[in-house]
Design a protein around this nucleic acid. Structure first.
Lengths: 330, 330
DNA sequence: TTCCTCAATCGAAGCGCTTCGACAAGCTTC
DNA sequence: GAAGCTTGTCGAAGCGCTTCGATTGAGGAA
């Protein structure tokens, strides 16, 4: 099955099936009609020999590499588990379209994009963690390499962007808290670095959260580590003694926030309300369980890959796709 | 710089430099000696045109793809941040050797290995999170694709394996606790699923931890989420009232373990000792700071990639590389 | 000067695939 | 039953690169 000797070529398959190499190619690609008998014999030969087309040869001849690149942020303050989910979702979806995924890191920057584009190593590109002013975007535009962005740069004209509607997510949190009578609310967000970079989603959450009229609201960055989270919560409570509602958009912090609130004598779900933006597990596995807005990393990744595939096939896709956030009450 | 039109070929470079295409190739690869003047002109032309060799053509002609695959575990209970560090380290090191990294997930299993090998899509492979009995290992053996494993399967004969010496890490933790007079110790490890899969490192930590004579020791799996961690700690303390030393090999749990211990009235650093296997931040950012054994994901990744590169160049590498753990006291 | 060596370069032959145009049969259609 | 379509298949060209001789001149040994 795995083929013993190295290098089963299309010629080997053709010989075994008693047809021309081009016929084998057409059977595999389905680009010309082939009689069922011939096709059957060819497929059999393919299976018998464990044939897989040589990727390089194929890309050379067809100008399609069968690979897409994902440029990953590996940076301070990014929320890792979500990234992993994203990667897993993207690879899974790409494989469904018979594509592989090349992993790039943001360190390579714009030059990396130019490199993979010029070497025809990949057919398309998914760019993650897009910043409001992102130098890579400009390069991408003139490269002409089909691409999809996760996130929205300042000027998203002519680009295909996909993201959760973070503004709506922020608004949903504010609404949830306000509806429970909180007139004084705050959001603990990602680490400071994320804000400094002007990562799109952080700004949009803020915008949505602060937009609710008739409520006093504030957004603060929040570190990821136990003692610092505790301190941040303490400071917040000291600064805003009338605070009764809190949104947390920082996964590893949630458990510690809950602790700090308990230490401060707040009874969550009674005189104090908390809502989470993050994975279900995080919201479920604290006591009490919290309402939450899911960041649908896997769906996002799938959508991005699908859009990219459509672009590769010359089909059109919406310029901008915003996934509707869903607030789950527990 | 980024090249305007698509498809600058070696012929374009050759024409501009006034040499034959083969000469350009030799300048780039350095496989034959070329006069400095010619080389200079060629390099200039390369830069002027923004030439990058077509990856497919190159792989077809040279039987080297310039890509290595990493097969990633995206599974329950794995500790994500460490994986990310690993990925980042591997990509960085690979780029230093002018290689790219193809991302695969363990879902594709053995068939995925066969596929990338047969299609000559990658030159080599790094396999992560190897289990004691791993079905992929057998396939790998007969595929003949150069590879490096992170972790050790039961039979590591003829394989190149790299890992932290987890046995020594477990032992170091036991020793640390015993040296502080703890005669009754326990280790809280990864989630149960990790043990069920018989992931190598978990078993080896256990072995090392339990090996210290004259100490009553035990290893327990530990979930990752706040309330469950609390419960696990409570159960442990109830079952072992004389417990005075604890090792934690589960990053997200550390903060919550500390809380649970405080709740139980244990004074860590005084009548009770805790040591962590995990990243420095995790150990530093709790109160009190804890001693810890670092899992050097980046070094591990670098080592793996370097070994793989050497294998690709036909050089030999040690069959088994165990990184010495370092216990940092804070 | 002649012969040999060596460094520097060129040209051509593939690598394994896709794709285009051609062609032989088997059908219609009048 | 000739003219035109289809359908299924083949052969050849070529994608852009590497690599293996072959070739050319220059320098040294004789």
């Amino acid at each position: 099955m795995a083929g013993p000797g190295r290098g089963v070529t299309i010629a080997d398959v053709a010989a075994r099936a008693g047809v021309a190499a081009s016929t084998v190619s057409y059977v595999i690609s389905g680009k010309r009609s082939i009689s069922p008998e011939t096709a059957g014999r060819v497929m059999q030969a393919v299976a018998d020999l464990g044939y897989h087309p040589h990727a390089g040869a194929r890309s050379l001849a067809s100008r399609r590499a069968g690979v897409i690149a994902m440029m990953f942020p590996i940076r301070d303050g990014m929320h890792l588990p979500v990234l992993m989910q994203f990667a897993a979702g993207a690879v899974a979806e790409a494989r469904r379209h018979d594509q592989d995924v090349l992993l790039m890191t943001a360190d390579e920057g714009p030059a990396g994009l130019a490199r993979v584009a010029a070497s025809a190593m990949v057919d398309g590109l998914i760019l993650m963690d897009v910043e409001v002013r992102d130098p890579r975007v400009e390069v991408l535009r003139r490269l002409g390499l089909p691409n999809v962005l996760i996130g929205f740069p300042a000027d998203s004209k002519d680009l295909t962007c996909v993201d959760l509607d973070f503004t709506a997510a922020g608004r949903a949190c504010a609404d949830y808290l306000a509806d429970r009578g909180c007139g004084d609310i705050a959001l603990l967000g990602a680490a400071e670095a994320v804000y400094e970079r002007r990562t799109g989603f952080a700004e949009r959450v803020r915008e949505g959260f602060l937009g609710r009229p008739g409520v006093r609201a504030e957004v603060r960055p929040c570190p990821n580590y136990p003692t610092e989270v505790q301190r941040a919560v303490k400071e917040l409570l000291a600064a805003r003694p009338d605070l009764t509602g809190l949104a947390v958009h920082n996964e590893p912090a949630v458990g510690h926030v809950m602790h700090a609130l308990a230490d401060a004598g707040k009874r969550v779900g009674e005189d104090f309300h908390v809502v989470v933006i993050g994975p279900d597990e995080v919201a479920e596995r604290v006591h009490p369980q919290l309402p939450s807005v899911l960041v649908p990393a896997e769906t996002l990744a799938q959508t991005a890959v699908r859009h990219l595939m459509r672009k590769l096939d010359g089909l059109d896709v919406p310029d901008s796709t915003l996934l509707e956030p869903q607030l789950t009450i527990r």
